[in-house]
Design a protein around this nucleic acid. Sequence first.
DNA 1: CCTACCGATCGGTAGG
DNA 2: CCTACCGATCGGTAGG
Lengths: 219, 219
Amino acid sequence: MPELASPTSAAPSKRPRGRPRKSVDERDDGNRRQDLLKAAAQLFRKKGFAATTTRDIAAAAGMQSGSPFYHFKSKDALLLAVMEAGMQAALDRLQTALQMPSHASLQPVEQLRVLVREHFEVLLGPGNDFVPVMLYESRSLNPRQYKQLQKLIAQYEALWMPVLLALEQSGHLRTPAPLAKLLILGALNWSVQWFDPHKSVSVAQLSDAAISLFTQEME
Amino acid sequence: MPELASPTSAAPSKRPRGRPRKSVDERDDGNRRQDLLKAAAQLFRKKGFAATTTRDIAAAAGMQSGSPFYHFKSKDALLLAVMEAGMQAALDRLQTALQMPSHASLQPVEQLRVLVREHFEVLLGPGNDFVPVMLYESRSLNPRQYKQLQKLIAQYEALWMPVLLALEQSGHLRTPAPLAKLLILGALNWSVQWFDPHKSVSVAQLSDAAISLFTQEME
DNA sequence: CCTACCGATCGGTAGG
DNA sequence: CCTACCGATCGGTAGG
């Protein structure tokens, strides 16, 4: 699943902009909604939620200024939808990776490496703007929306705990797992601020560097 | 230096709000400007730059809506001033800590502990909104302003390198220093998102946990 | 630093 | 999903 937030269909995600007219062989289902989500994610990430206008988003999706409100009842409902799509995709991705037969029997350190790599991919992979928006714009949600999002975040973070606890017990981690989880995720999440895909380091190298930083070497 | 951003005077920083009238025994120098900076830092941190109005800031500083523009020529000039004040104070703080006679002769691991603790204090200490604003709102600066701020950031980060390089050479750090710097600062910076001063963990405990996570135990 | 104000923009809606 | 629009708000300024 290379793309984030494609819940229902595997329909073509790239189309000429301008003013796409619905043709018969192209079911109109969620495509326009998806276009809005992608445009919103990209703009929210680049400019922030408050500095992005619904007109910007509409234009980026090839619509008129009032049209986003046909798909979403408000600007912050659109923000929440972006964040939930991003977190759901990330959650699916980590779960799938952990459940791979070849991964299930790995040593804890290698399991952590899998988690770290997938997390970096979710944050830094091409077109993956959804989760970065969640990381840096959740302040703009109202309390009810924030609470709803928290459920997904808690699920996501819960996936890390068994691995971290195993590492703590084997002596590869000197920090209590709950605190280690916060610090490690922080180190990874911050990469959004400085990572440049055009520069030398790859996600795989980055993951190895992170593992070597967080875990104790043992003979 | 318990307070951030008090460049010139040690004048009383708390005053009754309302409409403070200048009295003769109270030099009017930079006090109002400082009030604006503090109010702006607090609001920018809580609501973000774009979602904060100059009217909010004026009201929080006890002024009328147009008055901030007497002190700052634009809203983003105010943002830059907040960030620069925060970074300058942080820089001074780290330099002072490193130069303390009792710290200069410490082992590298203990020097890192000093840096980590000061950094947490800068981020999480009471009333320290300036640096968190810098961390999470620099997107709102224009390129020229951003470049100006980068000088201070580079100076700040440069203070960490000798310590990290020493740790790398002594085998306490398994990750190349430049990458370790980014990951470590990320882990610390993220604490702004979850740290709750009303809950159990103290900054000192947090610092110890971070050190134990990042450094290799050696006999 | 206040008063009074302008021009522009913005989220959102009715009605089709 | 578009057209046409409203009400509110916002950054900023002149003039004192």
